[in-house]
Design a protein around this nucleic acid. Structure first.
Lengths: 145, 145
DNA sequence: ACTAGTTAATCAGCCTCTCTGACTATCGTC
DNA sequence: GACGATAGTCAGAGAGGCTGATTAACTAGT
């Protein structure tokens, strides 16, 4: 569908997918092959002092069970740790482990490189406008702030 | 990660996901509940005269097997038909069926409504700039033109 | 005309991610 | 203390994706 003009949703998806693919390819090349998109969506929500499973699940918009499943894998692979929450005996905090922090740093570096390429192609001003428009769009499309 | 400024990939993903969710909710409400995201990504690539399975798979970036599985479901549900390709005895063309065309029309209408809301929020000029930037980004991020 | 290679599609089996439903342990409140 | 809410886990199921192997049909190179 859409003969002349592509749906704006598709237009958003194309560069998103391109970035995702390149970041994961770079991680795989660097020896982090056991890292998946689903895991990444959880890891990104972990705060500096650790975050509870339930909160991760809410923010990633998945069930607690699914979040638990993904955190199990991340823990086995050494990307995160689970530590008891001192303020609540039922809860545990999921924290980024060293391997996770290294991988995240690499991912951020690659993402920044790609953004730089995009800026090269669009020009700095249009890139700034793009970022601004997307940030404003977030006001009406992001359930989490 | 990203304390002050969100990664551009995430910024692209948030509105994309919001649109997708709303379109599928509208389709489900209208009686097209048996229609999934994975199926939609295939259906969107079907051309006016029908498209081969292999080509659909390539463009949707999935394997032929997966594409075949999804087209099976779409065919059972009445959204598409498979007809022999007159130019190649091995191949068959996947075509949109009537139920598929009706659903697609509804989906496009809902997507246009959402885009109108976004235009309302951003202003017409910024929306035009957004569309333009994304279209130009497509030049370097879309493997299929 | 035959062989070899390519392409279109399918079959079989497996893995990952996601869900629902049911359960245990702990917390907070009245 | 009793009760409802909350944090997390266990069990089972389904969707959507993969690799590998196979069949059928087209295309080229002798």
């Amino acid at each position: 569908m859409a003969e002349e003009e592509l749906n704006i949703g598709v237009l958003l998806f194309i560069p998103y997918r391109a970035m995702e693919n390149r970041v994961f390819a770079a991680l795989a090349d660097a020896g982090y092959a056991d890292f998946t998109v689903a895991q990444a969506r959880v890891v990104q929500r972990i705060g500096p002092n650790g975050t509870r499973l339930t909160e991760l699940a809410e923010q990633a918009q998945i069930t607690k069970q699914t979040a638990g499943f993904l955190v199990d894998q991340l823990e086995k692979a050494g990307y995160v740790q689970r530590v008891p929450d001192p303020t609540d005996g039922r809860a545990r905090l999921v924290r980024i482990a060293e391997r996770g922090a290294t991988a995240a740093a690499l991912a951020n570096r690659v993402a920044a490189d790609i953004e730089a390429e995009w800026t090269e192609h669009l020009g700095a001003q249009h890139m700034r406008q793009l970022r601004r428009a997307l940030t404003r769009l977030r006001e009406i499309t992001d359930p989490y702030q």
